[in-house]
């Protein structure tokens, strides 16, 4: 399997891609247009004529933040244009501010007790429900992924399918990881001694810039599967599938605040999150050149830090448990055995 399939696929297939505004039926009807030359002018609506051709004006979606179960705009009132690789405007996304990041941390902290307190079985049920809802929106996601990464629709569908399967994979981990990562310790004395993994708390996740859905799912699902809550900074370049994922989460049974999604500038959002005293851990996967600086900021409160992988990541490969255990604390409980 090729590394970073979405991006590599994009370059291989560049000639066959189309840039289009995702999210509407109109886009899907345009599949026959594959092979049309890419449009390169920046920040220009990608294909208004297609809509007109249907005889009906499509209703566009506003891409907002997802904080505490609600979809606010940025408190700053700002947005930024999201384009396809060729520069065609896909949509405006909210340009989150430091205050939005702060609100997201508050929401994540508030949700932590309830979410981590759920039974592992229940968390698995909720996550599986998310996968069901994802499956129902496969087409929409495929459109958005295809548009965001300029990959063919079929390839996009495969990537979305992989993302859904990844989500199901992690849904199944919720009630197994404790058995794998914890266990009884045979201490030399009359004591019962048990180590159990527990979620570390609020995790700030910097999603990989590439692989806007599969990469995002691959970093987010393990964080919340174990009971953590997350503040996710979506791929700055391709945030739209992330926002749609948030819509799925909002309409699943996932409690508000478990996942909080910010779109905007990594350089603006990451430093305050990395230094925030109520954030317990950082996933620096998508932190890029900021990684070292963020890790240094994290040292201020000794946050757990998952560093970016060396080299490029094959997001389609089975991930192993590393991303689950990275945000777990081991609690060991002793108790005497006597009558």
């Amino acid at each position: 399997m090729a590394e970073t399939p979405e991006s590599s696929e994009r370059s291989e297939q560049a000639g066959k891609t189309v840039a289009r505004r995702p999210g509407g039926r109109a886009a899907r009807t345009k599949r026959a247009d594959e092979g049309a030359p890419p449009q390169v002018e920046p920040a220009r609506p990608a294909e208004p004529p297609a809509v007109a051709a249907q005889g009906r004006l499509a209703v566009r979606k506003t891409y907002k933040l997802y904080v505490g179960g609600a979809f606010p705009r940025s408190e700053s009132g700002r947005s930024y244009p999201v384009t396809d690789p060729q520069g065609g405007l896909l949509a405006n996304a909210a340009l989150a501010s430091r205050k939005d990041a702060r609100d997201a941390v508050v929401a994540a902290r508030r949700a932590f007790g309830g979410w981590s307190g759920r039974t592992a079985y229940n968390r698995g049920q909720v996550l599986y429900r998310v996968a069901e809802m994802l499956e129902g929106r496969l087409g929409q996601f495929a459109d958005e992924v295809a548009a965001a990464d300029a990959v063919p629709r079929e390839r996009a569908e495969a990537l979305v399918a992989a993302a859904i399967d990844r989500w199901v994979w992690y849904a199944g981990w919720t009630d197994k990881i404790a058995s794998v990562a914890g266990g009884a310790n045979p201490v030399a004395g009359p004591y019962f001694n048990l180590s159990t993994p527990e979620p570390t708390g609020v995790v700030a996740v910097f999603a990989p810039p590439e692989a806007p859905l599969l990469g995002l799912v691959s970093v987010l699902a393990p964080v919340i599967a174990t009971g953590n809550t997350a503040v996710v900074v979506a791929s700055e370049r391709a945030p739209l599938p992330a926002v749609t994922l948030a819509e799925v989460l909002a309409t699943s049974d996932l409690p508000g605040g478990v996942v909080n999604l910010l779109t905007g500038r990594l350089a603006e959002l990451a430093p305050p999150l990395a230094a925030h005293a109520d954030v317990n851990a950082l996933d620096l996967t998508g932190a890029g050149a900021l990684a070292a600086e963020l890790e240094e900021a994290a040292a201020g409160t000794l946050k757990r830090v998952l560093r970016p992988a060396e080299g490029r990541t094959d997001w389609t490969a089975e991930p192993g448990t590393e991303r689950l255990t990275a945000f777990l604390e081991t609690k060991t409980v002793w108790h005497p055995i006597g009558v």
């Binding site: 201490v187 004591y191 180590s195 317990n280 409160t301 000794l302 609690k331 060991t332 002793w334």
Partner: peptide, 29 residues
């Protein structure tokens, strides 16, 4: 509910090579 790496219930300051030891939060990782 205690956010700590080692909980001694009805005992304290017990150590054993088989038993993992370490902290939450600013007690390290």
């Amino acid at each position: 509910r205690l956010r700590a790496g080692v909980i001694w219930s009805n005992t304290f300051n017990k150590f054993d090579p088989t038993s993992p030891f370490g902290g939450y939060k600013e007690s390290g990782y």
